[in-house]
C-alpha cells in the first residue's frame, strides 16, 4: 500500500515537473499578490492591513490550479481507473493526489507568500514563524477543498465557474480564520490583544484542519469512485 502511494507520488511529481506546472502556479500567485498594490494607491491605504485578504485570495485562487491537470488528465486517459486496480484502495490514491497537489503548488507558495508579505506589505520580522504556520495550515485546508471539488466535477461539462462556485463557500471558514491569524503589525505595546487574537485564530484553523481532513478525504474518495464507475 505504501509502495503504491510512493509510486503514485513519484509519478505525479514527474508529470508536474515535465508539464512545468510548478512555475505556472507559483507565478500566478505572485502575479495576484503584486497586482493588488498596483491597483490601489499605496500612499492612501494601510497596505499591511489589507494584506491578509490579498494573500488569502491569491492562495485560494492558486490552490484550485494544480489538481486540474493532476486529476482531470488521469481521469480522461483512464489512468485513474487503472490505478484503482492495484493493491492500494482508492483512499490512498486520493491522499496521494492531495499530497502531490500540496507539495507542488502550496509548498512553494508558502515561501512566496512570506517573502511578499515581508517585502511588499512590511510584515513584522518577528511574526515570520506565526505567519508561516498559518499559511501552512490554511494551504492544507484550501488544497483539501480543491481536491473535493475537483473529484466531484471529474468529467463534467460545468467548466471552471462551477469549481469556484463550489469551493468559495467551503473555503469561507479557512479564509476567515486564516486572515485573522496573520500578524501584519508589530503590537504597539506588549499587552495588546493582537497576539492572543492571532493565536486563537491559528488554533481554530488547526482544529478545522483536524476536524475536516478525514471526512473530506473520504468524501473525495466517494466522488472519485463515482466518477470512475460512470466513466
Amino acid at each position: 500500500m505504501l509502495c503504491v502511494f510512493l509510486a503514485l507520488i513519484r509519478r505525479d511529481m514527474a508529470v508536474v515537473l515535465r508539464n512545468g506546472q510548478l512555475s505556472s502556479t507559483l507565478s500566478f500567485f505572485i502575479m495576484v499578490v503584486v497586482f493588488f498594490p498596483l491597483a490601489i494607491d499605496p500612499a492612501s491605504l494601510d497596505l499591511a492591513a489589507i494584506s491578509p485578504a490579498i494573500i488569502w485570495i491569491g492562495l485560494f485562487l492558486a490552490a484550485q490550479l494544480p489538481l486540474e491537470r493532476l486529476l482531470h488528465d488521469d481521469y480522461q486517459d483512464g489512468s485513474l481507473a487503472l490505478w484503482s486496480l492495484t493493491r492500494a484502495p482508492l483512499e490512498v490514491i486520493a491522499t496521494a493526489k492531495y499530497a502531490v497537489a500540496w507539495l507542488t503548488a502550496s509548498l512553494p507558495m508558502i515561501f512566496a507568500a512570506l517573502a511578499s508579505g515581508m517585502l511588499v506589505y512590511q510584515w513584522p520580522m518577528d511574526a515570520i514563524l506565526n505567519n508561516m504556520l498559518t499559511i501552512l495550515v490554511g494551504s492544507l485546508l484550501l488544497t483539501l477543498i480543491s481536491l473535493l471539488t475537483r473529484c466531484l466535477t471529474l468529467g463534467s461539462r460545468g467548466g471552471k465557474g462551477l469549481i469556484y462556485l463550489m469551493s468559495m463557500p467551503l473555503s469561507l471558514p479557512t479564509l476567515i480564520f486564516g486572515a485573522a491569524s496573520l500578524r501584519t503589525h508589530t503590537p504597539t505595546d506588549l499587552n495588546t490583544s493582537i497576539d492572543t487574537e492571532t493565536t486563537t485564530a491559528l488554533i481554530l484553523l488547526s482544529l478545522l484542519l483536524l476536524a475536516t481532513l478525514i471526512p473530506m478525504l473520504w468524501a473525495s474518495t466517494l466522488a472519485l469512485r463515482n466518477a470512475i464507475s460512470h466513466q
Binding site: 463534467s156 460545468g158 462551477l162 463550489m166 468524501a219 460512470h230
Partner: peptide
C-alpha cells in the same frame, strides 16, 4: 449547477448529493 453538469443525470445527482 452540479446536477446539470454531467451527461449522465445519475452521476450528477450522486456528485451533488456528496456536495
Amino acid at each position: 449547477a452540479m446536477t446539470q453538469a454531467f451527461k449522465q443525470q445519475e452521476r450528477g445527482q450522486q456528485a451533488a448529493s456528496i456536495l
